[in-house]
Design a protein around this nucleic acid. Structure first.
Length: 504
RNA sequence: GGUCCAUUCGUCUAGGGGUAAGGACGUUAGAUUUUCAUUCUAGAAACAGGGGUUCGAUUCCCCUAUGGACUACCA
């Protein structure tokens, strides 16, 4: 039978976590949970030049927000620690040297300046079978020269020797059989001059050592898959090679190409899971969390970008996703990201979630906006208005006035038609309010209408002003329901305040 | 340029040799709500093109076109 499923998410900690990255985690996670396997987080920090302060912590926080708890990770530890590639540095050299010894790889002494010159000189230069012999490496150079360079501690890299005329094919769980002509790839660097492995070596070595059974990654990796395959073979581990799963890309909504954080800024929507502050520039890139997406909605939306369960259902909890998930229902083509649809998922999740569940998050956005809400009243208010919120932050505008006198009034909608007669009406209505605590909102509404008639006013001509007095704008649930939640005293107070403004 | 991958409404997609090509988002029109949103009803909207195979192709095959990814001592 198949070994226990082990999958890993292996991000490079260089900045914010992109939508596509989260979807890769999601599919990893769903697959692992579905099959009772382990989900591992491995940090691929082999590029010391791209080290970014705080990026790893940020990734951990993102996973946490989404609810993906890794079974093994740099912080949780695990049987295959360490889970940070920089801390595994010595292991990689051993395997690289082994490949050299066995003739599958070689030392290359070319400086980056020499490489650049070569690229300039030869169009579409590739460091491979065609030009290998023209370069400075342990294949082209005589043995004693190689030894001399090594002894002199000349900086070198180790490159894989890609064979010519060999076809590499493998099964991708989403695409089926894929094949490549190996010789078309160049001799990829496996070990850099600083002794760190490149992705190519590290991913193979670590996937092997960590007993990964299924390797999920973005489709952009497809072209380098043959290099990895060769590595698995040369290292003698082919039987342990994970199954490959290359996920379709998430594309820009307009035009074409991979979705990038630039597109978010340009088109006005988030691309990162949570907002990310670049420590170098202080630049803040907004995230779905800060915009007010519930993690459930974010995950649900991501899952549907490239997967469906074959029915017409589009709303799934994480448990349902785990239950229904299957790789053969993942589509092959890239999907353009649609922010409108994303917002729809958000609204649906807010609608279907109970007030009690929503309350903590609502409190949080309230706090950020200087609103304090009494718990009992908050629950009633959430139930009343959650249907009108698209994202959690909408609660500030849609529910804030229940707890705070409006800070702005839509005066343009009342002032032009304001009359003394109307003012008079509200004075009388305040009197009614004074003794209406026992009335239902329907009864109160009846009184309001009756009074309007008495004063020869059209109901509509005073209803809207009344709403604006309480709410500040032309939105919200039925005014008399608002009145009851607010309480008569508060309503009278607000009428008084607004009257001043309307009159002015 | 080369290699690989992909191609059903504007978008996400279902489907699969004979269908009215289904759903959702968005959009349009209407109803409800004396606000706004929700909700409800109805509508417009798609198989990239050309060859095959077949009694019959949107579905299978080939070619073309288009799009994308990759082509670093980055992942």
């Amino acid at each position: 039978m198949m070994d226990k499923v082990r999958v890993r998410f292996a991000p490079s900690p260089t900045g914010g976590l992109h939508l596509g990255g989260v979807r890769t985690v999601l599919f990893n996670y769903l697959f692992a949970k579905k099959h009772g396997g382990k989900f591992i987080l491995r940090i691929e920090d082999t590029d010391q030049n791209r080290f970014v302060e705080g990026a790893e912590k940020y990734i951990l926080d993102c996973l946490d927000w989404c609810g993906f708890k890794p079974d093994e990770s740099p912080v949780a530890g695990g049987p295959y620690a360490p889970y940070r590639q920089s801390e595994r540095k010595p292991m990689y050299r051993e395997y690289a040297e082994r490949l050299v010894k066995e003739g599958y790889a070689y030392y290359a002494f070319d400086t980056s300046a020499e490489l650049d010159a070569k690229r300039k000189e030869i169009n579409n230069f590739q460091y491979g079978h065609a030009h290998r012999m023209d370069m400075k490496n342990s294949i082209s150079l005589p043995e004693d020269e190689v030894q001399r360079l090594l002894a002199a501690e000349t900086p070198y890299v180790i490159r894989i020797k890609i064979p010519e005329g060999e076809t590499i094919s493998f099964i991708d769980l989403i695409r089926g059989e894929v094949s490549f002509e190996a010789g078309l790839s160049d001799d990829k660097v496996l070990l850099k001059a600083d002794g760190m492995p490149t992705y190519h070596l590290a991913v193979v070595v670590d996937d092997y050592l960590m007993k990964i059974t299924h390797a999920f990654r973005g489709e952009e990796w497809l072209p380098s898959a043959p290099v990895h395959l060769l590595l698995w073979r040369y290292l003698g581990w082919e039987d342990d090679m994970p199954k490959w799963v290359h996920l379709p890309l998430i594309l820009k909504p307009d035009g074409h190409g991979k979705l990038s954080k630039r597109d978010g800024a340009r088109l006005g929507f988030p691309v990162y899971a949570m907002s990310w502050t670049d420590p170098a520039t202080g630049e803040v890139t907004p995230g779905f969390r800060e915009l007010g997406f519930m993690p459930e909605a974010f995950i649900n939306m991501l899952a549907m970008l490239g997967w469906n369960d074959g029915t017409e259902n589009e709303l799934f909890s994480i448990e349902e996703l785990i239950d229904k998930f299957s790789l053969d229902r993942v589509s092959k083509a890239g999907a353009k990201f649609d922010f409108e649809k994303a917002k729809w998922y958000s609204a649906e999740w807010i609608k279907k979630t109970a007030a009690k569940q929503l309350a903590p998050a609502v409190n949080e956005v309230f706090k950020k906006n200087g609103i304090t809400a009494e718990p009992i009243k908050l629950l009633a208010v959430i139930d009343m208005i959650k249907d009108r919120c698209t994202v959690m932050t909408d609660f500030v505008q849609q529910a804030g006035y229940f707890f705070k006198i409006p800070s702005e009034y839509d005066l343009n909608s009342v002032k032009p038609k304001w009359t003394e007669q109307k003012e008079e009406f509200f004075h009388s209505f305040s009197e009614i309010l004074l003794g209406s605590a026992a009335l239902t909102s329907a009864e109160l509404e009846a009184q309001f209408k009756e009074l309007a008639q008495e004063k020869s006013l059209k109901v509509g001509d005073v209803m809207l002003p009344y709403r604006i007095m309480l709410v500040g704008g032309k939105y919200g649930p039925a005014v008399f329901d608002i009145t009851k939640v607010l309480g008569e005293k508060e309503a009278i107070l607000r009428i008084g305040i607004a009257l001043e403004l309307f009159r002015a």
